[in-house]
Design a protein around this nucleic acid. Sequence first.
DNA 1: CTGTTAGCGCGTTCAA
DNA 2: TTGAACGCGCTAACAG
Lengths: 353, 353
Amino acid sequence: MVTLEDVARHAGVSLATASRVLNGSSRQVGAALRARVEASAAELGYRVDATAQTLARGASNVVGLIIQDLSDAYFATIADGAIRAADLHGMVVTLGTTYRDPEREIALVATLAAQRARAVLITGSRVADDHMLGRLRAELDVYRSSGGRVAVIGQDLLDADTVAPRNREGARELAHAIVRRGHRRFAVLAGPVHLYTAVDRAAGFLDGLAELGLPEPVVVHGGFDRDGGHAAAAELLEMAPDVTCVFAVNDVMALGALAAFRSRGVEVPRDLSLAGFDDIPTLHDVVPALTTVRLPLSRMGELALDLALCPQGGPRVEPVAGQVMFRHSVAVLGSAAPADGSAAAVPPSLTAS
Amino acid sequence: MVTLEDVARHAGVSLATASRVLNGSSRQVGAALRARVEASAAELGYRVDATAQTLARGASNVVGLIIQDLSDAYFATIADGAIRAADLHGMVVTLGTTYRDPEREIALVATLAAQRARAVLITGSRVADDHMLGRLRAELDVYRSSGGRVAVIGQDLLDADTVAPRNREGARELAHAIVRRGHRRFAVLAGPVHLYTAVDRAAGFLDGLAELGLPEPVVVHGGFDRDGGHAAAAELLEMAPDVTCVFAVNDVMALGALAAFRSRGVEVPRDLSLAGFDDIPTLHDVVPALTTVRLPLSRMGELALDLALCPQGGPRVEPVAGQVMFRHSVAVLGSAAPADGSAAAVPPSLTAS
DNA sequence: CTGTTAGCGCGTTCAA
DNA sequence: TTGAACGCGCTAACAG
């Protein structure tokens, strides 16, 4: 293992001089010595020891990123944005995966604190569990008291800089957009009752419908992932509700629902319309194109990293608006459809059974 | 920032004792002192400094993972497996993304060497560029000479432990499986000419056809990603070749091709059959279900990590077989179809034009 | 502009 | 079983 001292000796200079030329010091070094040091470093194959630098400088160049599941495009895309941004700052990203376990989330914060990560980015919905929330906050306080910075993508519940997707407003606007196309009777695949992101989106959708004087939709709860969407959709079909459009609170759930519908002969959007939330890249080639609310996922990752790396006064909250993407998965019904929906298409597959 | 010394002082013991109870030392410590130290650590909110440990021990607990693109499910799945395995070993993963730039790949190895990563995992196809290959090998040698371990997922070209997908064999078997279903005339969306993975798969497919005495397929080169597949498929349709089945050398290309076909009114598998390679999880809900060659991606990530972390003698090569997954995207043609294919369906959309 | 030196936080000999 | 002291590789005063 080649150390800075080896390089210094080989170049016939002091340790300090070698350090100054090889690592971004503000101090100047004569051209001759500089060249000698660089030549020696190259010849010996010297690589700085970032851990030693961290120790000496008191600040590392790693940022921690905590996500729930890398195989979920939502998180993969955020992670991609964060990594890209970190790279611009000369930082590396250490990735931790919770697999949706709040216990692991806390443990990961501790691990990243031990790693002396300059900042920790936490993504994913908070859960409605005050005990867990309290423990996470405590762990974050420990981390912060050792000089760490924290940024969150999600609900503003951790006294940290937060990139806050406007889930409620996005879902509300989605409801309006769909109603504008003639739909009147809805179902919502609402996800878990304890997940704020799911709850907010479902609530926003209900808000939108209520504002327009429409009846409450059928609500089915379930998992927040693809299989949850699939199961909830299957359950919904069993109920054979009189609805024309289904809103799944995220895209992967919508994809699961789409598969469930298809396997039961319900064609979207002919028999039933479907909408999701997030606009994950995976949607690109889905048929029919899925109506959804676009969140700038990659950008959110960058934003969180920038917030964490550029400390200001108190915690800042950066709201991120969603943009309704109206696509083929939602049918446009007769514009004269009355509010009671009697003129809207009622798929036999749903009313029969 | 709470240090071990703070804890020791607070507990009224020596630094060494505190170190022994808080970090997995083999030495024993009296129960009374042990309790005092643990209490102090908890009370003060002590978190080990992993960078200091790395310096003192000469070995870190981070492994570096170099991938090409996190938004590609192929890499995301491998990364997931590697992270999972690293966790089991008490290691954290630092993720670097090359965006398919060999220059960045080399730079990332240097960065991870600086990080004193215990091991570096390199994924993604090698490119046919001796200069780049040489530089990467040199960088890896530097890293290894400082005690780092290297494992590769891909071609066995770096003198390192290698998880080697049997691309050629998999594609060959795929060809056989498809021919068995009555297809005789093929096209291959072959990807870039300088990417070994693409080249091997295309070559394996040609091997398979040749073994069966079938004519050479139409070959179209292009990008190795979704857009590459889309473009190549569009180009193929322009050529209006007399083929019944198209093989794209990876799944995301196949997905792009599927979209291109669809947008031009060519329906898979009615008008044209399509197959891919990898069996990325994304395929789960693709319609029609895509015939492909399954690679145990997550497992490959684990395997690479295990190889890297359990040093043996010389470099080991772990071949990974692909498994043909025959699905709806490839039509089953009349089993009596003659080798000249005159009885096979020839979609008007391809022959007319 | 260059060199000397004192830590950074911790593991680990060695001695008690 | 416990403690004292050195060193891991590097940075940042400080001195020259």
